[in-house]
Write a protein that binds this DNA or RNA. Structure first.
Lengths: 251, 251
DNA sequence: CTCTCATAAATGTACGTACTATTGCCTCAG
DNA sequence: CTGAGGCAATAGTACGTACATTTATGAGAG
């Protein structure tokens, strides 16, 4: 309900409060039986039509509802996919297909790593949280994944069993936000004999190496190096006049 | 100037006409010495502040200007880069670095190719324009590139010497528009011995294989298969809350 | 010359009104 | 039952006003 949802004494703009409340109610499914009209929202929240439209514009632009002259707003499919890079796409795609995703943890602890420290904007000899895993999909090795975090972020994760859980889920449990932007460098490389035995590939074999730096509010907070078996993964990119979409394909 | 720029009798909304005119003037460099304020635009175009803001909101959201309380709008960098896929990024990046870009044309003509025809939504036995090249950068082989076009599009290109010219430039000369959207499938593959001799790589070597379908107004018009030497190319992806940016890196 | 503070200017927020264009629904004639 | 037409509802466009908040500027004190 709108009781107390809007507080005119707060510094936050009215439309922003209304926008937040509408998002909340959308997520809660309040509008499953139809989205209210501008007039109804104006009465319900006791704001002007201008304020309602200011909030609704953002809802529309996010693609959550569709509206037009003469007809009320229609709730659209609720998928709000934030870009999280090709790596995230990879592992999400696996889950969405219901493939069992497990990992073999090769190491998990604190260790210095000059190259990773440089990418995290830290002094070369800083201790970093490092997590090295072989990621399995459907029981078969898919990728070798090594992630470094600043020690202060990784500290609470030292005792975690990462064989069945995702790093971002663990970060969320400790109320640490995931990256909101980042860079990835994707190259095709030969899988080394040592790596080949871990990934159970023939020699020679090709792999996709993804070097990733994740940022939060512009500050590096995650540095990753992942080698995916070339025979089991494809990176899919779709582009149009508005931008790119990235997804993955695992076999 | 604003003389006659806005026509209230037209069906197009006033803000849209204003928006279009501001875009035009921006592109023409009219605002190089500072973007006009809302008040000035209101007077100049004889519209209400609401209409000015409706137009300006779109200019701001397109990232063309930046504005905030107390200070006038600032013109930002004017780069409006249309996404054209990773392949385009690859070859553009080479040109921007001034590296001499040449090609060895392996074949150029009309030929049927069932698999490519399927991707172009054409009957399997249709004749297609096919152009197969080894692309060189700095005198050294970089990629093997094979592109198929529907015969009617490729017909005028049959006599072109593609050893020094880009396909899209040739299409432009014949007033054929380039794709405005498309899909790419990027995988890591082993370079076959036959390909290795063409690309001058050792055996074994890894390569990035890009299968691309370019669309114009939703209709497939280009189908491509490119194998890039893994040791000479990296695909760079940057992502933030708004979307992805893709670029390339050649060595 | 430099720092501080008041002022002006600009955009942001928020209210009001009116009219337009489009849609969906209901009524009514056939 | 069906189709046409009118009517009400709804979002879009466009105008007006006022005040808040932030920034840049300039005057004046030190």
């Amino acid at each position: 309900m709108s009781m107390g949802a809007l507080d005119r004494s707060r510094r936050e703009p009215l439309w922003a409060q209304l926008h937040a409340d509408l998002l909340r109610r959308l997520a809660a499914g309040d509008f499953a039986a139809g989205f209210p009209g501008e007039a109804q929202l104006r009465v319900e929240y006791e704001v002007s039509r201008h304020t309602v439209r200011e909030a609704m514009r953002r809802i529309r632009e996010a693609g959550l509802v569709e509206s037009g002259r003469g007809r009320q707003s229609q709730v659209l499919s609720q998928r709000i996919e934030q870009p999280l890079g090709s790596l995230y796409s990879l592992f999400r795609e696996i889950e969405s297909r219901g493939i069992v995703q497990k990992s073999v943890v090769l190491s998990c602890g604190l260790k210095s790593h000059p190259e990773a420290a440089a990418r995290l904007d830290l002094p070369p000899e800083s201790d970093l949280f490092v997590l090295e895993r072989i990621r399995l999909a459907g029981g078969e090795p898919l990728a070798h994944d090594c992630v470094w975090l600043p020690a202060q972020i990784g500290q609470p994760l030292l005792d975690t069993d990462f064989s069945r859980t995702a790093l971002y889920d663990e970060l969320a449990k400790h109320h640490i936000a995931v990256p909101d932007s980042g860079r990835e460098r994707i190259t095709a490389t030969l899988i080394s004999p040592e790596m080949a035995s871990r990934l159970n590939t023939p020699v020679p074999a090709a792999g996709l190496t993804i070097e990733r730096t994740g940022l939060r509010k512009g500050k590096p907070m995650e540095c990753r190096r992942t080698t995916v078996r070339g025979d089991r993964y494809a990176l899919l990119m779709a582009w149009n006049e508005r931008g790119y979409e990235v997804s993955g394909q695992t076999s």
